[in-house]
């Protein structure tokens, strides 16, 4: 079952601005594959800005959802 986290995380990006690695639970996770990418407009009427979501597979085998919101990165979801 996926677990919603939604907390800021440090992310290293590649030349295209896509996540290449991120820190989580005192460990560095290298992204080996971007499974999917999509955009969400969010609650535009409440002033929310558009977010880009990435579902990534880490080297450890875990699957994570990260999103970028105005330059800040967040870990949104972890797939157990």
């Amino acid at each position: 079952m996926p677990r919603i986290v939604d907390r800021p995380v440090a992310v290293v990006t590649d030349s295209g601005g896509r996540p290449a690695g991120f820190c989580w639970e005192r460990g560095k996770r290298r992204v080996v594959r971007i499974e999917d990418v999509w955009k969400e407009a969010g609650r535009w009427w409440a002033g929310e800005t558009e977010k880009i979501f990435y579902r990534v597979e880490a080297e450890s085998g875990g699957v994570y959802e990260l999103y970028a919101d105005q330059g800040e990165w967040y870990l949104y979801k972890i797939y157990d």
């Binding site: 499974e35 999917d36 999509w38």
Partner: peptide, 8 residues
């Protein structure tokens, strides 16, 4: 159009 699942 950048929806989840587009790539697949």
């Amino acid at each position: 159009d950048l929806l989840p699942g587009n790539r697949t």
